[in-house]
Design a protein around this nucleic acid. Structure first.
Length: 265
DNA sequence: GCTAAATGTTGAT
DNA sequence: TCAACCTTTAGCT
């Protein structure tokens, strides 16, 4: 679930529940007991997403830094809250809502300086207003690394994960193996714009959809779950546009998917 | 009902 | 390079 679109969606959903409110905080699992104690009774001032990172700003310059990792999740609803079950790292409660955090890679207290150190390691986030794509281009255009690896590097580009990597490369007709410095600038410009469009659509829908309607509808019969993607996890299946078998191979410790005809080396 | 794999990152080895 | 995080889902049986 969590690529950049998920994180921005959570921030959007959590703001009206938390900002301006005083919260109760507990860590039923115990692993964040000290942190929860520190947050308990404080007012939330802001909720800020950057790439795959979430910051909850509390009064007194106390920040909660959350990174969901592979299977972390937030669940929120109106009171009453259910009995805490299983590994519940953090529960925030307001006058009318509860928010449960499970399985995050990071759930920790930060100072503003800590946050700045995290942000300094991140490239531009296509979902943030004013993000400068040229910062990413400076890295890409000078690198011998494959573009498929560069897109996954959060210091090059923040918020893109394995699904968007595969899909945006397919949509650009670009081989994942092309070295960054051999990517034409025009193609990069198009990919950045495409990422903005796709990520925003992902925030709105609450999940990733990268296929165009005409490509989804091309096959006869009812739409299937997998029709949301062109190549991601479709290895061995025919490419939606040319029919060639979609291929897969590990790159940067993640499974990469591509069409060798639509994305020639 | 069981197993494997998964959208991510960090820290130890 | 691997384990850890700890949940969900797809694909079997």
């Amino acid at each position: 679930m969590p690529e950049g679109h998920t994180i921005h969606r959570l921030a959007r959903d959590h703001r009206p529940l938390l900002v301006g409110r005083e919260v109760r905080a507990t860590s039923p699992q115990g692993r964040f007991a000290t942190g929860a104690e520190m947050l308990d009774g404080r007012r939330v001032e802001a909720v800020e997403p950057y790439g795959k990172h979430l910051f909850y700003v509390f009064e007194g310059d106390v920040l909660l830094h959350v990174h969901l990792g592979l299977y972390g999740s937030w669940v929120a609803a109106s009171l009453p809250a259910p009995e805490p079950k299983g590994a519940l790292r953090l529960r925030l409660t307001t006058d009318d809502h509860w928010l449960d955090l499970r399985g995050p890679t990071a759930c920790e207290l930060h100072t503003p300086d800590d946050r700045d150190r995290v942000l300094a390691r991140l490239g531009p986030d296509p979902l943030r207003k004013g993000a400068d794509p040229d910062l990413a281009w400076q890295r890409i255009s000078r690198s011998r690394m494959a573009i498929g690896a560069l897109l996954m590097d959060q210091s090059v580009l923040a918020g893109v994960g394995n699904v968007y990597r595969a899909e945006v490369l397919y949509r650009a007709g670009l081989s994942p193996f092309r070295p960054g410095r051999e990517v034409p600038e025009r193609i990069w410009d198009g990919m950045w714009e495409d990422l903005r469009v796709l990520l925003r659509a992902g925030v709105r829908a609450g999940h990733i959809v990268t296929t165009e309607r005409e490509d989804r509808d091309r096959r006869s019969g009812p739409a299937r779950r997998g029709d949301r993607f062109y190549v991601y996890r479709r290895h061995g299946e025919p490419c939606r546009r040319c029919g060639t078998e979609v291929r897969t191979q590990e790159m940067v410790a993640r499974n990469l998917f591509w069409c060798p005809v639509c994305q020639p080396a």
